[in-house]
């Protein structure tokens, strides 16, 4: 079932220009810089990375909530990036989004009924009676009831609001949902409820998720494949289990090792990275990770690494794995 490609992202770029005043040169922030990946139908594909790595911008650019600077987003054979406004709008019924902040993503002046009715209305689905039936059915699926129809968002808790946000995304029965940190704003006990709901909905409706998160334990639990992003670029892609068992890229290794232990007796070997993530406005030359990389080579400073493929579609962009006859010099370039 997982052989059909649903979405292909090719050389996607999103640059922001920041004006520095009239005669100064503009600063270019490369939020998303040449990103490539494919998502298969029915799978959960994760984008993971730290804040500012461009994972959210990637998600928003795919849905054209942010206009891409360059590149293609091919969804079921159609290139979304060059689609006229009206066609894109009507295609949105097949691809929806769940937002991180359930407090900000619902209009405070609308009732739940209005919020859930809107997608059906704008895409002209069903007649009036049928719509209400659908909405009530949907509310029940996400664990609320028709009793809540006339309530306003502020009357709900964070977890309940996120359920409403999910209901709004699923009610059009899309094929594809981008979930941007859907559980990050929630408490642990509520987080598990929402994750369960998302897993159940996926089974029920055959959804494909693009799951954007910084939380590695959630990613490990519910995704099939993972792409690790660093400074606007994808540095490693692998099956989830494969990635957690055998991370290749030094950044992924450090990221995984930084996850706190689950039990106090657990001993963990830490790779503590030095320094902070550099600014995407002024990324390091060569491999963007080289100033923090414990294994950086001389070549890393100058040349951007090409992806190396391992077994089962596991790829990593790192010079360490490029079979190179040239002399390999280990450099301690970090301070």
């Amino acid at each position: 079932m997982k052989n059909e490609v649903l979405l292909t992202v090719k050389n996607l770029k999103k640059y922001y220009e920041i004006s520095q005043g009239m005669f100064k040169e503009k600063i270019v922030v490369r939020a998303v810089d040449d990103v490539n990946f494919t998502v298969m139908r029915g799978e959960t594909f994760a984008l993971v990375g730290e804040s500012g790595c461009g994972k959210s911008t990637t998600g928003r650019t795919i849905l054209r909530l942010v206009e891409p600077t360059a590149g293609e987003v091919i969804f079921k054979g159609t290139n979304l990036a060059s689609l006229p406004y009206e066609q894109m709008r009507s295609l949105r019924k097949q691809m929806q989004m769940v937002f991180q902040d359930p407090y900000a993503s619902l209009n405070p002046k609308k009732t739940i009924l209005q919020i859930l009715m809107e997608p059906l209305k704008v895409h002209n689905k069903f007649d009036k009676k049928e719509r209400l039936r659908k909405i009530i059915a949907m509310l029940k699926i996400v664990g609320l009831s028709e009793y809540h129809l006339d309530r306003y968002p502020h009357e709900f808790s964070g977890g309940q609001r996120q359920r409403i946000g999910i209901a709004r995304a699923v009610i059009l029965q899309p094929d594809f949902i981008i979930a941007d940190e859907p559980v990050s704003a929630l408490d642990v006990s509520v987080q598990s409820q929402v994750i369960n709901l998302m897993l159940e909905l996926q089974k029920e409706f055959g959804l494909t998720y693009l799951f954007i998160s910084h939380d590695l334990s959630v990613i490990q639990h519910m995704t099939d494949r993972v792409a690790v992003m660093y400074l606007g670029k994808i540095v490693e892609v692998a099956d989830t289990e494969d990635l957690f068992r055998n991370p290749k890229h030094p950044y992924t290794q450090a990221l995984l090792s930084a996850v706190p232990v689950a039990h106090p007796k657990e001993e963990k070997k830490r790779i503590i990275l030095k320094g902070d993530v550099p600014s995407p406005a002024n990324p390091p030359s060569g491999c963007a990770f080289h100033p923090r990389c414990p294994f950086a080579l001389e070549i890393c400073k100058t040349k951007m690494p090409e992806p190396t493929t391992f077994e089962k579609g596991h790829t990593a962009n790192c010079h360490l794995y490029i079979k190179n006859e040239e002399e390999i010099e280990y450099v301690t370039s970090y301070s």
Binding site: S90, Q96, A104, N107, V122
Partner: peptide, 14 residues
């Protein structure tokens, strides 16, 4: 700039 407006765009509201 509010997220619920972005959410409307994502839903496909004109």
């Amino acid at each position: 700039e509010k997220e619920f407006i972005t959410a409307c765009v994502a839903t496909g509201v004109t």
